[in-house]
Design a binder for these strands. Sequence first.
DNA 1: AATCATGATGGAATCGTTTCCATGAACATG
DNA 2: CATGTTCATGGAAACGATTCCATCATGATT
Lengths: 332, 332
Amino acid sequence: MNMRRTTIKDVAEAARVGVATVSRVLSGGSASPETRERVLTVAAQLDYRPSALGRNLRQQRSGGIGLLLPDITDTFYARLADGVLACARSAGEPVILSTTGDDEEREAEAIGMLLEQGVDRVIAVPSGDAETWIPTLRAGLTTVFAHRIAAGRDDVPSVLADDRAGVRTAVDYLTGLGHRRIAYLGGPGQQQRLAAFRQALGDLVDEELIVLARGTRDSAYAAAAGLFQHRPDLTAVLAGGNLLGEAAVLAARELDLRVPKDLSLIMFDDVPWAELCSPPLTVISQPARDIGYRAAELVLRAGGRRPRGVSLPTELIVRGSCGPRGTSRSPR
Amino acid sequence: MNMRRTTIKDVAEAARVGVATVSRVLSGGSASPETRERVLTVAAQLDYRPSALGRNLRQQRSGGIGLLLPDITDTFYARLADGVLACARSAGEPVILSTTGDDEEREAEAIGMLLEQGVDRVIAVPSGDAETWIPTLRAGLTTVFAHRIAAGRDDVPSVLADDRAGVRTAVDYLTGLGHRRIAYLGGPGQQQRLAAFRQALGDLVDEELIVLARGTRDSAYAAAAGLFQHRPDLTAVLAGGNLLGEAAVLAARELDLRVPKDLSLIMFDDVPWAELCSPPLTVISQPARDIGYRAAELVLRAGGRRPRGVSLPTELIVRGSCGPRGTSRSPR
DNA sequence: AATCATGATGGAATCGTTTCCATGAACATG
DNA sequence: CATGTTCATGGAAACGATTCCATCATGATT
């Protein structure tokens, strides 16, 4: 059952030509029509598939795209991955997926593994800073950052959602409803978003209303619950990711805060369950899949001039989780 | 900037030994203590990483685990993938991910790609039947099915949730509440689950109350809405997956059916938003991550005797989406 | 002391492909 | 007819690792 796989040599013999000719025919080189046809026929008969192993070794590059994500169970990253996969599939390139858990060390490990595999193209939602990404530069592999960039590596092409505009729209919407004490629930690696929040809020910014969690559900819940208990005077909250939004809804329910009467909530990233929630969540939708797709396009089109960065629009989708500022909650 | 990567030859020269010795030292073979240390030191100094390309070609196998899933944006499969990734990471193996969209043809393509890459281990949630999986057998690669099996390939080891028991528990729970007209909303490739439903329901089974959708959101919604409109007499529904469950909630809301007063709902697979829903959804939870992890263990432990199939328990988590049978809804 | 066993070591073959280069044929141009 | 050009073709050299095998030194056994 375990017969040797058919190699280019087998094809060459069967077609009574040299291996060089077979290789040329199969990779579109020049050959006489009759030879070409004979080789093609034989190759099809033997069901020959060139081994990527041999080819990669020879050409010193393993096709393949490395994809580094913080967490595949986060639907945002899952959609991003889906975009990458779609593009890679149409290019016939395999995708090697690794998750980093937003941990620099794990990220460095994953990069090492990709390097070892000879992968020469990477798409990443970076967790580490410039230093983590030195090896990739030195190894000369094509890198594209998605969703966010590694601090101090502005030279790497990137595909980002327009956080700045998204945050501004959301904050404007909330202030327009009369809210003044607006909190921000952030996750790891979102300086961009946070900065935009501070800027959009201007004088109203209150550092105590800015809370950062780590990437886990527990951490997000703790951050949200802590915030709500500590500052009963806040009337609106902007959650910087779907995990944070989920935590906010849960924490609000636990503390008997009614949304949107007691608390207005806007969440970054539109997810299917936002509509199922009660009330349905007002969100800033991000084109996660497009981000992935565009990143893949960029990393595949390695040769040509690549634009510095692509920015994709966000959209405020108004549902039912925001209302006019009510009477401020009484401290308990 | 683009200097050649350091090879085993460089290390050999720098350590004044032969390449064979370096290889032996690095892969745990025998060597004298002083030589071993010298090689190790030099290798560390040069930051040498053995190229997987060379190794794989020589050994005729590319480490790597191929992972074939219908859809990575479905949180169930995402969690399964997460389990696979966790196990693979601890074994230092890369994971090549492909999605099939529940399409046989795409699955066959993906298999071809993996074969070409020299991948010799595959974990799959199969979409195709036995025929699709012939090439993998012929190529002699280690396969493990997860979540479901390919029709007619009982010989392949698998890791499954105990659907049978899950369905039975759910149906018993519903009948215990007095429900008699219980519908089943199914997805692609779940003969197992459907059969269990029929069996658990016994005499009560009504073929008109069994509806199958394809793997998309739209298809799921259409199936749910159609079912609810067509058969206003049904009082309970079992959704065979989180996409179906989502569709059921949406369709029920659209048709002004109150859950659980007018309609009791149980969903297969526990997802974070099930708790956020109102009412919170009663679900049959499946250990998605464990399924992935166990499958990876199985596929990595290729040599040893591998058990035919692993079955993991499911659990009925009662929340608020089921109630006693109310007065049957009046047809409109 | 001669032989044998053990263990460290390096040279060379190997994996399957691409690609460089030489060869030879066919043909055109002087 | 001689020379140059074009083109198809196949042999052989890479690529970077592992691994077989021969070699040599050392220590043990007869």
